[in-house]
Nucleic acid binder design. Structure first.
Length: 424
RNA sequence: GUGGAUGUAGCUCAGUUGGCAGAGCGCUUGGUUGUGGCCCAAGUGGUCGUGGGUUCAAGUCCCAUCAUUCACCCCA
């Protein structure tokens, strides 16, 4: 039989890689829960229509990257390609607003997009993020951005930068798009073929082009969206910036930052990792004041972000910070024979019940092999159990770091470990 | 979907003008009975991605194919 492999664009999180994942998850939990955000877990698949309506039918994600299938009842379903639509669906369906006018939510889990895999881009990938639903005020935008920054700080990542922008409300944006089109039209022929194609389809995406000529033309001829905001949007954006200043967070106002999803309004932001290659967006988000209504709820303002975990781990890796030690045994119980194993089995389980990490030998190995194993696993203490120990109901605790040994009786083992371990 | 690079041991990689398949790390065992690390020794481990072709002979040259990877695109 041909050996089976994980499908293209998917990855196993291997046993020895899980500590860094646990670390990321626990920092998320810490940061979000101390701001009183609650975790929401939504199903991995939804009706296809949800994403078509939420993300935008003509976006790349919906039009060519979704894992969509028909179930046996003939219903069209899709593995979620992003989180926000699902969370908003749940918000509307279960009337979250009846519990409290402001919902502070966070999530973490896998997403699916059928793209060509590359560094920092997988077909099954993982994101965490938050959605803050119900507040239209700049304090909400600022809190979301600050939480994102706090998270990267707490996780220990050094090299990242925050870019923010405001793309205003939908009506003013249409006016701006017209202005942009008019200003750039005289130079149409100088743009790259990709940009020329985008000209009519979605002219805002010209800003994402990596071609230097195009960027030069934009710098010279494109009006800045931040100069064409309504007074309300402008003061909203100014207040967001001010709050970031108050918090002491460094940022770059980047008028070229237009996010790809259709639902954004006003504030958009992105955190870039400097260690990463082409896929350098660690975290992206912004305000989406129309989405709840578009998905069938009451008009409700909202703001949030999503962050890629694989990219974060790549970035930590590049800074040599992804090596999080796994757990090490407090006690390694080396048994010489089956009778010894029988003798200490209950003691071992009792210690584990008390929270001690205890390793035993299940391979009937030699003492030398068990000692090597204990050392490799960085056990704090080792004890070798044989006929003598069974007879006397005592054991010798050996501290693997110092080499010191200590005789204790079986019923004092927990006390001995506690004393030794709590005073390192 | 488009372009480039790369496929040899569990991992990282050598392998000359075609001539017996290699190293380091890892893993296992041993170095006098029941005490680790360091050191020493032995052992384990590969359908050279796959299928064709050229040749007395192919890991090496040619063709095809698959996979991986980087970049475009898009996005986290």
């Amino acid at each position: 039989m041909k050996s089976l492999k994980a499908v293209k664009g998917t990855k196993d999180i291997l046993p020895w890689e899980s500590p860094i994942w646990h670390h990321v998850e626990s920092v998320c939990r810490d940061v979000f829960s101390t701001a009183l955000y609650q975790e929401v877990r939504t199903p991995v698949f939804e009706k296809t229509e949800l994403f078509a309506r939420g993300i935008g039918e003509f976006s790349d994600i919906v039009s060519k990257e979704m894992y969509t299938f028909q179930d046996k009842g003939g219903e069209w379903l899709t593995l979620r390609p992003e989180y926000t639509a699902s969370v908003i669906r749940s918000y509307i369906q279960h009337h979250y607003e009846q519990h409290s006018p402001l919902q502070k939510l966070w999530y973490i889990g896998p997403l699916f997009r059928q793209e060509r895999p590359q560094a920092g881009r997988l077909r099954q990938f993982h994101q965490f993020g938050i959605e803050l639903i119900g507040s239209e005020y700049p304090e909400a935008d600022a809190e979301v951005i600050i939480l994102a920054c706090q998270l990267y700080q707490k996780i220990g990542l050094r090299e990242w930068e925050l870019h923010i922008n405001s793309i205003g409300n939908t009506k003013d944006r249409l006016k701006y798009i017209q202005l942009l089109s008019d200003s750039l039209k005289p130079h149409f022929d100088d743009f790259c073929p990709v940009c020329r194609e985008r000209f009519d389809k979605n002219i805002l995406r010209l800003f994402d082009c990596k071609n230097e000529t195009c960027q030069g033309l934009l710098d010279e001829y494109a009006p800045k969206i931040t100069d064409h905001l309504s007074p309300e949007d402008k003061s909203h954006f100014d207040e967001v910036c001010k709050l970031l200043d108050v918090q002491g967070i460094a940022y770059t106002i980047n008028p070229k930052l237009v996010r790809g999803l259709d639902y954004y309004t006003r504030t958009t932001f992105e955190i870039k990792g400097k260690q990463l290659g082409a896929q350098d967006a660690l975290c992206g988000g912004g305000r989406y004041d129309n989405l709840v209504e578009e998905l069938g709820g009451k008009p409700t303002p909202a703001v949030g972000f999503a962050a890629g975990i694989e990219r974060l781990i790549l970035a930590l890796d590049a800074e040599n910070k992804s090596d999080i030690p796994g757990s090490r045994p407090d006690l390694y119980m080396a048994t010489l024979d089956v009778a010894s194993y029988e003798g200490i089995l209950k003691m071992c389980t009792a210690l584990r019940n008390q929270g001690y990490i205890v390793e035993t030998d299940l391979l009937r190995r030699s003492v030398k092999a068990m000692m090597r194993d204990a050392n490799k696993k960085q056990a704090r203490y080792v004890t070798v159990i044989g006929p003598d120990e069974l007879e006397s109901e005592t054991l010798t605790l050996k501290n693997l770091e110092t080499g010191q040994t200590n005789q204790v009786s079986w019923n004092e083992i927990a006390k001995a470990l506690e004393k030794e371990i709590s005073t390192p």
